[in-house]
């Protein structure tokens, strides 16, 4: 079938997944003992029982679970993620402000990872068994093993404090797209991207090394095509399928990594907000961010599916 039909069908199948994600997110938070109102009451013991009941109504925490879920879902669909308990401010405002920050950080990390990993993987595969390959694999192993908060702090220590090349704090007065801000993102981007880069390198290498043994490679060489064309046009496209799979799962890893990296670099994104909300038991915020993250992962996988179909025509028959 055509690419377009494939994409449409895949897109439609994403909807039930998102629905399931919402049910699970909601269910998880309602299975935990206590609810936002009991938290509020603990902080203010003079809240009377009547008031407590009223609060429950107001926060939509009364009634059977399924009804609460539907109420919550219908709000979420119009962008209303309820309010922060402590301050009464709209959670959607928080999301709006912080989501772009995390997205940009994640994008940096992602781009860095891919930009390093694909050439490194190709290099390692083409030079399989030789020094370049071994070096690339050792670096990849280190990248995966280094804890990201340590790496972040180390980068700050070396590049900000010793070398003075970057500020320690992000330039908070400047808008996100300002070159200074983007420049600041280099260090956190590298931190977040390193582990991802390591994984992608390994997969790229393996995938490519396998493909290089395929018959069509010999055939392409037999046709007299230059090695460059053989590797980058013919082999690469076939090797990318595994990488795309991995890259999609990396999204979740990058979002998770952003929690730590944003704290270390004082980056005002969803990750640091998540930690803060957890510490303060701001259930609505935590739920909203969980949902957003889950949606992001689902979308990443959808994109991966689309990319497969673009890369490999055989897959469109699914």
């Amino acid at each position: 079938m055509s690419l377009r039909r494939f994409v449409v069908r895949r897109a439609l199948s994403v909807v039930p997944v998102l629905f399931g994600v919402s049910v699970i997110t909601f269910g998880l938070f309602h299975l935990t003992p206590g609810d936002p109102v009991s938290q509020l009451v603990a902080l203010n013991p003079d809240v009377s029982a009547a008031e407590e009941a009223r609060l429950r109504e107001r926060w939509g925490l009364s009634g059977p679970v399924w009804r609460q879920y539907l109420a919550w879902l219908s709000n979420v669909l119009v962008g209303d993620f309820s309010r922060e308990l402590r301050t009464g401010r709209a959670v959607s405002g928080i999301l709006w402000r912080r989501l772009p920050e995390t997205i940009v950080l994640g994008a940096f990390g992602w781009v860095f990872a891919i930009a390093i990993a694909i050439p490194a993987g190709i290099y390692a595969a083409v030079n399989k068994g030789r020094f370049g390959d071994v070096a690339a694999r050792v670096l990849a192993l280190s990248g995966v093993s280094i804890p990201n908060f340590w790496l972040g702090l180390l980068l700050i220590l070396v590049f900000s404090l010793y070398l003075g090349l970057f500020p320690v704090l992000p330039p908070s007065r400047l808008p996100l797209y300002h070159p200074e801000t983007l420049r600041y993102l280099l260090l956190p981007g590298v931190t977040i991207g390193t582990a991802a880069a390591a994984s992608v390198t390994r997969v790229m290498r393996t995938s490519m090394a396998e493909e290089l043994n395929e018959e069509y490679v010999t055939a392409a060489r037999a046709r007299g095509l230059p090695e460059r064309t053989v590797v980058f046009k013919h082999v690469l496209r076939n090797s990318l399928v595994s990488v795309v799979t991995l890259a999609a799962t990396l999204t979740a890893g990058i979002v998770a990594g952003s929690v730590v990296v944003e704290s270390v670099f004082n980056w005002p994104g969803l990750g640091s907000e998540f930690v803060r909300a957890i510490n303060r038991r701001e259930v609505n915020v935590v739920m909203a961010i969980t949902l957003v993250t889950a949606v992001a992962v689902v979308l990443a996988n959808f994109l991966a599916d689309v990319l497969y179909a673009v890369l490999d025509p055989r897959i469109r028959y699914d």
Partner: peptide
């Protein structure tokens, strides 16, 4: 600046 290490770092760097 919630992170203690970052705050100390920012002081150290003069920010």
């Amino acid at each position: 600046v919630p992170d203690d290490a970052t705050r100390a770092g920012a002081l150290r760097s003069g920010e």
